[in-house]
Simulated scan of single mutants.
Amino acid sequence: MTSTKITTTKVIAKKTKPATDQLEFGRHFTDHMFVMDYHTDKGWYDPRIVPYQAITLDPAAMVYHYGQTVFEGLKAYVTETNDVHLFRPEQNVKRLNRSNERMCIPEIDEELALRALKELVKLEKEWIPNAPGTSLYIRPFVIATEPYLGVAPSKQYKFVIILSPVGAYYKEGINPVKIAVENKYIRAIKGGTGEAKTAGNYAGSLIAQEKVSDAGYAQVLWLDGLEKKYIEEVGSMNVFFKINGEVITPALNGSILPGVTRNSVIQLLKHWNIPVKEEKIALEDIKIAYKNGSLEEAFGAGTAAVISPIGEFACEDETIVINNHQTGDLAKRLYDTLTGIQYGKIKDPFDWIVKLT
């Protein structure tokens, strides 16, 4: 039975906060964190906010050996009126539990997880930077902690939430990036763990990312793992294409992560009466659209960048230049609208914002 009372132990001496212009993504961490433990005999227990500290684990802890772990990522924003906004946090908690199910990790009470997240962010409000484009990144994660080398689900876990102040993703404005199509390595396959947010997915993508980075590209365009002809994701983001006035994004197929930003983009497009559909997209279809002049825009969508315009795809046999390497009108409108809602600058017609009081 989950204990629902969250205890709080505050730090004695607070850390020195980094200057806003020195913020890097994921390099600085706040004074406190949330921790909750699990044992098969007790369920989830002892939810607590404690000073940020190292986690000590047995060398045989199962997370080290079999990768039984999941995580999430979302942000807190401070508005011009000094309110604190969360953007659709309930969706991240729901997705965390879907990842838990896939990785054989016990379900976490979603109401308790949301309450813990809110209490932690409120306690650390002074850590939320207020310069344009900055925010407080929130990283919930679960790790298997049982010391056991048998291949089986762990009987013990830790659920942790840590916070990190982060700078503007685009330091010089929203600009298109160059993407390389990956045709050797595979990110995920239907029936695998692609639709779960688990560490191994990202570890397996690093070699391809290193390869394209050395060649001057920002991200990898991942193709399906079976036929290597259908587009799935770009880097760690969902991807969208605007072709002849219609927006298309790969359908969720069991290997694609169901992004919260992806879902928000789809809802916005429908709200604006812009045609949008989710379906299989072959790379060859994008090449054809490029050659006949109907490929108008392409962009990634995810928590960190919100919207990342794509100016170029490098394929084995050709280079596809999109919108003359310029940010498209739709990508800019989506970016301005989503960030405007997040920072409280424009009306939220979907009730996406959770205001902390």
Rank of each mutant, 00 (worst) to 15 (best):
P89H: 01
K15I: 07
D41L: 08
T79W: 03
A76I: 01
N97D: 04
E101Q: 13
Q68E: 10
I12H: 11
K17Q: 14
I12N: 12
R88Y: 00
K14Q: 12
D41P: 01
A76T: 00
Y77H: 01
M62Q: 15
P18A: 02
F71G: 03
F25W: 07
I55F: 09
F29A: 08
V78K: 13
D37W: 01
V50C: 09
R88T: 02
T69S: 15
P51G: 03
T7R: 13
R98C: 06
D31V: 09
V78E: 11
V35E: 13
T20K: 11
Q53S: 15
Y64I: 11
T9Y: 09
Q22G: 12
M33N: 03
K5F: 10
P106T: 06
N92Q: 01
P59M: 04
Y52P: 04
E72V: 00
P59Y: 02
E90Y: 05
G73T: 03
V84E: 03
T81C: 06
V63W: 08
G67R: 05
N97V: 02
F34Q: 04
Q22T: 12
M103P: 02
H32Q: 05
E80T: 13
H39D: 12
A60Y: 08
T81R: 14
G73D: 01
L74D: 00
N92A: 00
Q22K: 14
F29T: 06
H39A: 04
A61K: 04
G73K: 00
Y77L: 04
K10R: 14
T56M: 14
D31K: 06
T9V: 14
P59Q: 06
T16Q: 12
Q22C: 09
A54H: 14
Y52R: 07
K17M: 15
K10N: 14
E80A: 15
Y38N: 02
T81W: 08
Y64P: 03
P47H: 06
A60S: 11
Y77W: 06
E90Q: 09
K14A: 14
T16M: 10
E90K: 02
V63F: 14
T7N: 11
R95Y: 02
Q53I: 10
Q53Y: 07
R48I: 12
T69I: 09
T16R: 11
T30S: 10
R95K: 02
T81E: 14
F87H: 05
Q22R: 12
R27F: 10
P106D: 02
K14V: 08
H28W: 11
T79E: 07
L57N: 10
N82M: 13
F29H: 10
H32V: 05
M36L: 07
R102F: 01
Q22L: 09
P51V: 08
T9N: 15
L23T: 11
V78I: 15
M103H: 00
T81Q: 15
E24G: 08
I6W: 07
L86V: 05
P106W: 07
W44S: 00
T56G: 13
Y64G: 09
T20N: 13
R88A: 03
L23F: 02
W44R: 01
K94T: 12
T81M: 10
Y45P: 09
E90T: 07
